[in-house]
């Protein structure tokens, strides 16, 4: 009996991510969702610019590589051209919440029937650790060497909260992958975000709080702890919007048991 195997919708390519980076876990969760829904041959993924730029080498489904921040627009084109295919984007915080904010908000408000995996690690990883739109107040980065000063650099963007204020999107949730419990919950939520698309429900975004030990300057273990200590208090986990659920039984309860902040 096989108890553990590589998801079929991941290729054999060796991941280039740093030790302790949680992109690998998130790739795996996405691939497991694709496998369990049996949609690999019918899926087209959109890679971002950022650490996950070469995601096109790792997912075994058809892949495209978008310009920085434009993945939701490119996914829109693909989905409008091939409405019966499953289209997902995989984007980081700089890509989705800074340079691509317009594309993100408008794909959401159109309720574009795509799935967005949004990896929030509060830093620009690929370029070597600059301040991200999601870097926390006081967070030291290469471009906020004295800590993010909200007076000059402004506040972090809370993407899940922001998008859930729109009437358009079907499903907005925030999960984390820093411990087994959170990973198991993230797996369910990511699968739901894909199933929503299969069911034609519309725009489903999962924000995944992710670790970047290299650019946070921490050990992998310390980075996972930092998610609990700093990230999650600022970015509470939970389901922020679930249109079908609230239209049905009226139960929009956070799926992972954590209360959504009002």
């Amino acid at each position: 009996m096989i108890v553990f195997e590589k998801p079929k919708s991941l290729t054999d390519a060796e991941l280039h991510y740093c030790p302790g980076c949680t992109h690998g876990i998130i790739h795996r969760l996405v691939a497991e969702a694709i496998d369990s829904l049996g949609i690999e041959g019918n899926t087209i993924g959109v890679a971002p610019v950022g650490c996950a730029v070469m995601a096109y080498n790792y997912f075994a489904c058809d892949m495209v590589e978008a310009a920085h921040g434009r993945a939701p627009a490119m996914a829109t084109g693909i989905k409008r051209s091939l409405p019966d295919r499953i289209v997902f984007t995989y984007q980081g915080d700089g890509d989705l919440a800074s340079i691509g904010m317009a594309e993100t908000v408008h794909a959401a408000t159109r309720n574009e029937n795509i799935t967005v995996i949004f990896v929030n690690n509060a830093i620009y990883g690929m370029t070597g650790g600059q301040m991200a739109p999601t870097s926390l107040p006081g967070q030291v980065t290469q471009t906020s060497p004295y800590g993010r000063d909200v007076l000059t650099a402004g506040y972090p963007v809370k993407v899940a909260e922001l998008l859930s204020s729109l009437d358009g999107p079907e499903f907005i949730a925030r999960v984390a992958v820093n411990n087994v419990k959170n990973v198991k919950n993230a797996k369910k939520v990511i699968e739901k975000a894909f199933r929503n698309q299969i069911d034609g429900k519309g725009f489903s975004l999962v924000e995944v709080i992710s670790a970047c030990p290299t650019n946070w300057g921490m050990t992998p273990q310390k980075a996972l702890d930092w998610i609990d200590e700093k990230m999650i208090p600022y970015y509470p986990l939970g389901v922020y919007k679930d249109k079908s659920a609230s239209a049905g039984a009226g139960s929009a309860r956070p799926q992972n048991g954590q209360e959504v902040q009002p």
Binding site: A73, M74, G77, R80, A102
Partner: peptide
């Protein structure tokens, strides 16, 4: 499909997406 995009930038990237599908 007619879609009024949020910007010229989005419009051309939607074009990029459809072009990738061969249409």
């Amino acid at each position: 499909v007619f879609l009024q995009a949020e910007s010229e930038i989005a419009a051309i990237n939607m074009v990029y997406g459809v072009a990738a599908t061969g249409r």
